[in-house]
Design a protein around this nucleic acid. Structure first.
Lengths: 122, 122
DNA sequence: CAAGGTAGTATCCTATAGGAAACTACTTCC
DNA sequence: GGAAGTAGTTTCCTATAGGATACTACCTTG
């Protein structure tokens, strides 16, 4: 009897693995989830707003990550016609489809922290 | 009027950002989602099974990531009492709580790919 | 005209994530 | 006894992610 694949090498399973890679490559790096998470809460935010809200990020990374997200049509960059020029970053409609994923991420993190500090059942 | 935080610096918002960081640190790296995703499908898998199923991973990375996951109580490592010694990796009950998150990740990836290759609405 | 706000760029540097390949150690099959 | 399977470990190497810092450029306010 020849050794068969243990799980599925059916299309559906290949697709699943591919899909995980895709999502990870779009949301790669240390900051994208934070930025998106902040924009979900904040609706429309300027560059300096995000710099303040996203704890620990610097201008270089913020600038670069915002460009990445914009290129993938997850956020809008709107240069406003104000006296000191301001820029409004916001989620696109498409970017909003990430909300369930990010909520799930946050939900699990909350419950993870509880499982460690709440009850030391080790 | 003093400049106030634009979003919320309320506890709930701090907690959310913290939670995202927590989840990301537990699931950091290139492979953890793939490994967990495979174990969700495969139930119980050996080292070589995982090496075959997780496309592109090498022994060093697989070994290291499995150790990480085990340390965080997300997977079990069971050395079986077989003739050529085998090891069974499986999700812990706690690890299974990641299923919704990973499903969400995969779901979004599938729909992302469709949005690119399906309809070129650029 | 200096200070402070807006929104970034540019440069330099380093820690580390992760790949490739070789190697251990044990067993069973042919 | 050599090949092939189990499950890893070790070493060496490099690309790059990301931090710190300084800088541009424009506008407003005192």
């Amino acid at each position: 009897m020849k050794k068969k694949a243990v799980v599925n090498n059916t299309p559906v399973c290949q697709v699943r693995m591919q899909a995980i890679s895709d999502t990870m490559s779009v949301l790669s790096g240390k900051w994208k989830f934070h930025i998106l998470g902040t924009l979900i809460e904040g609706n429309k935010l300027g560059f300096m707003d995000l710099l303040r809200e996203v704890n620990g990020i610097g201008t270089k990374m913020l600038s670069k990550e915002l460009q990445d997200l914009e290129m993938n049509h997850l956020i809008n960059r709107n240069v406003m016609n104000t006296k000191p020029i301001t820029v409004e970053y916001s989620l696109t409609e498409y970017g909003k489809t990430l909300a369930p994923l990010i909520d799930e991420l946050a939900k699990w993190g909350v419950q993870y922290r509880q499982s460690i500090y709440g009850l030391e059942r080790d």
